[in-house]
Design a protein around this nucleic acid. Structure first.
Lengths: 337, 337
DNA sequence: TTGAAAGCGCTAACAA
DNA sequence: TTGTTAGCGCTTTCAA
């Protein structure tokens, strides 16, 4: 690995000059010198040592992509098509800015914070964070941060977030079912926080507007995934008789539940309509294909990275809380009654 | 951000002492000093500056995870459930070793090489590489490297690889079809290189052993994905009459083709049997669920990271070319004739 | 247009 | 047990 110093020696010049050529400082170096240095760089495959550069400049050129994964969900998290697409897209947009992406996955927010501080990342993208995490980050991290899909209720601090209009999505898909003649509609999710809660609230909104009664009972709380998918599936199956339609908080659950019900001999959508949320590969692979709420993960990533760099460059970055639009993708899993 | 030097000043001691406490050098520091330093570290949330540390030690604590993605496949690549699971698993195992994962996705191997050199990564995991890439890497990179799923025919250089027994998988799934009474079996893939070629060769092996004729025509070359999935699907559909079974080189294609044929009114597996390869989420979501060849991506990642660290630590790392076992997962997409 | 030199924060050899 | 010091490779200020 050749260094600037060695090249300077070889040419009988100073490190400053070499450095100036490397950074293309215009008019600071004579053309003949520029040529000589460039030749050497070529010849020896010079690449700058990032650690040294970063140390000297007190920046890192790293964008941290941090995800909090609760212990039991851990394994699932990156398998999830959402996470995969997001990671890929973020990496691409970050690279296009001339930065690098470092991954931090942990169930411990403290570990994430000390890792990113240690690397002196220039910016941070945060996934799967809850309010307490946001608070801690806000307090300890002085670097530009953008959250993805965060909903911190009554937060006492400012934060920048990119998400979709989950509540509207929940409302619209529910209205769609209502317009299709459904009255007994259940909402299924494995938690009642964050995006799932918003989707749920949208569902409530739609029921209210339509004057349909809401009962506690209509929220089917699925055991968080992890070990026992079959448990989740039977939870759903038990309640099938009470409803004409299921709204699942994600395509993932919708797809598995749909298949399970079919495997048990039910006719979908004749006996039960099912819709999902996200419009990912799951919704397209099952039959009947799922009617669902579309979100554009790549676009979400683009906006996130853009916003982050606007903050880094101290430019105007628009709204603190960005909500990308959603729309319904009509497929075949809903019966018109 | 507090530094070692500042802490030393605050305590009226030397940086060495502080550094020794940080590194838990046993017996080199008096207990009372250890306490004082620890208290300060706590109080000021000290975290080491990695750039400085790395520069001084000439290591980086970074494992590069580099993937070559051909332009048109780019977008698909990380969406692919395989890539997502692998990234997640690699990150986890790397973190468990106390290292960090940096992502490098590019269609240009030169860019990958200069990026990883620049960061001075301690080790490199490589995906989607072809022989020329391997050659270049071998020649330019002096760091420990492990390839995943690489097959460099007649390579003039040594390389370490972790993969699965693709050829055996191809053979066994074909034998399975033959034993189920199939004679007219097509193999479908979008390329004839690397893992797909090996899977194909396994298919050929099985045909040969069974004394079944092989015709050029039985290899259905799908247009590489990218834009036009519907094109791929019609390519498959056109040839449906000539065969009783399709072997797809991946679950992804198998799932899409299966659905398409069903959508066109065909009965699967009554009119055509379809099998896939990989045993990922696609094979489980379609109906009939796909009989396929299982591979364990998480285990593959574990072995890859293990091997890499054995090389880094100059320990015995076993075989250069590791092939994890595969086995058939029997589901419902094959008809017994 | 070029060069000298200080310093980024940490490590580690060596001295005390 | 503790302290001094010379780097690691690069940037950047200032002087020549």
């Amino acid at each position: 690995m050749i260094t600037i110093k060695k090249m300077a020696e070889l040419l009988g010049t100073s490190t400053t000059t070499v450095s100036n050529v490397i950074h293309g400082k215009p008019g600071e170096v004579s053309p003949v010198m520029v040529e000589k240095v460039k030749k050497l760089i070529e010849e020896y495959d010079y690449v700058p040592n990032r650690n040294a550069r970063n140390l000297a400049r007190n920046r890192s050129g790293i964008i941290g992509l941090a995800m909090k994964a609760s212990e039991n969900k851990y394994d699932n998290f990156v398998k999830d098509p959402f996470a995969g697409e997001l990671i890929g897209a973020v990496e691409r947009f970050v690279r296009a800015k001339g930065y690098f992406t470092m991954l931090y996955v942990s169930s411990d927010i403290g570990e994430i914070i000390s890792s990113v501080s240690s690397w002196n990342v220039d910016g941070l993208i945060l996934l799967g964070m809850q309010k307490e995490d946001g608070e801690l980050l806000n307090q300890k991290m002085k670097k530009p941060m953008v959250f993805v899909d965060a909903y911190f209720e009554d937060a006492s601090f400012e934060y920048v977030n990119v998400g979709i209009d989950d509540r509207k999505g929940g409302r619209e898909i529910t209205e769609y079912l209502i317009q299709s003649g459904h009255r007994k509609i259940a909402f299924l999710a494995d938690n009642c926080m964050g995006v799932d809660y918003q989707r749920f609230m949208g569902y409530r909104d739609a029921l209210d507007s339509a004057g349909l009664p809401w009962k506690e009972d209509n929220f089917i709380r699925l055991k968080p995934s992890g070990a026992d998918l079959s448990l989740i599936l039977s939870q759903a199956y038990e309640r099938v008789g009470d409803f004409t339609a299921f709204i699942c908080a994600s395509d993932y659950y919708a797809a598995y539940i749909l298949n399970d019900l079919k495997d048990r001999g039910m006719k979908i959508p004749q006996e039960l309509s099912i819709v999902g949320f996200d419009d990912n590969v799951c919704s397209r692979l099952v039959r009947p294909a799922l009617t669902t709420v579309h979100q554009d993960v790549t676009e979400k990533s683009r906006i996130t990275v853009d916003k982050l760099f606007h903050i880094i460059n101290e430019e105007n970055y628009g709204a603190n809380f960005e909500q990308l639009p959603v729309f319904i993708v009509e497929r075949s899993s809903v019966r018109k009654i």
